[in-house]
Design a protein around this nucleic acid. Structure first.
Lengths: 157, 157
DNA sequence: GACCACTCTCAAGTGCAGTTTAGGTTTCAT
DNA sequence: ATGAAACCTAAACTGCACTTGAGAGTGGTC
């Protein structure tokens, strides 16, 4: 509390500060800004200044990436946050809630996979006609190029 | 059984057949072969011919990708399979078992993330000092470039 | 024996998520 | 007032997982 009160004085943080606090390289932060994931204002000398809340945005980005979301998707989610004002609890809460369902899907997918694998270990198969693991393959066909890890079942991509 | 007996007659399949049966583009199959993930023999006219068991290898590759493994890693796993003979149940079983622990890790990670998120929804936070989600970020610093989705905690990378 | 679908190689291109480099400007502590 | 540290832009480069394109060869069918 004491700490926050003190720090609140300097409401705007330079990129290096954001970088060291978030563990994200400055180059990545500029990249995120290019991509519209975060925003800054500039000083008279054209240097970026970020709001404290940007750290939260970045935390969100990182967490979302762990779940396997592409930056474009994350951007979509973050777009629902207000850019002008600091997001309220309600803003974050709404965001987190919709995002959580993604997470649930992802987990369910992996669990399904694990169960399939279990039954495959049991039967020693991965066998042609019967194995669920094997026959799931249809899903994967006809997706675009590029690294697509866990990018499955996302409509509109 | 009847079906298998019939099909066993043509033991070697051309790339187009493997492609349509697996849902993986022929170009991708050639790429996998370049990368040493699958193998073929050639006809007199230099056309690839794959063993039936290659379909299983491909299924495995696809499944492993869903879990977030990189091709290089998958290759490592597949290298433990015999190239000369059709893999036995034991071969697959051994492979699946080590791979399963990866899956478990992945799932555990996502669940941890979900629980963190839950507490964040509860507190409405993602807040600076306290939030576990936020403070997990340290983990993420200092990783190489490139698409790194869910590529977390893999030693030797 | 000609046709056509299928296959071959090799090189270049794509999309993602950044990093690196080069050359210049700003800020801050002394 | 000056020098180091931090910051700026733009363009090029990286690694992964493929795809696309060009030009040539193969093989099963009428």
């Amino acid at each position: 509390m004491v700490e926050e009160t003190i720090l609140n004085k300097e409401h705007w943080l330079p990129i290096g500060e954001i970088s060291s606090r978030s563990g994200v390289a400055a180059s990545a932060l500029r990249f995120y800004e290019d991509q519209g994931l975060i925003h800054s204002r500039r000083t008279a000398g054209n240097q970026r200044q970020y709001q404290r809340s940007t750290l939260r945005r970045i935390a969100f980005i990182q967490a979302a990436q762990r779940v396997g979301l592409a930056l474009a998707e994350i951007r979509g989610a973050l777009d629902s946050l207000p850019d002008d004002r600091t997001p309220t609890k309600t803003d974050w809460s709404r965001l987190s809630r919709t995002w959580r369902s993604r997470l649930d899907e992802r987990i369910a997918e992996l669990e399904r996979l694990r169960d399939d694998l279990d039954s495959c270990i049991g039967c020693g198969c991965l066998s042609l006609q019967r194995c669920t693991l094997y026959n799931r393959q249809d899903h994967l066909a006809a997706q675009g190029p590029g690294a697509r890890i866990l990018r499955v079942g996302i409509p509109g991509e």
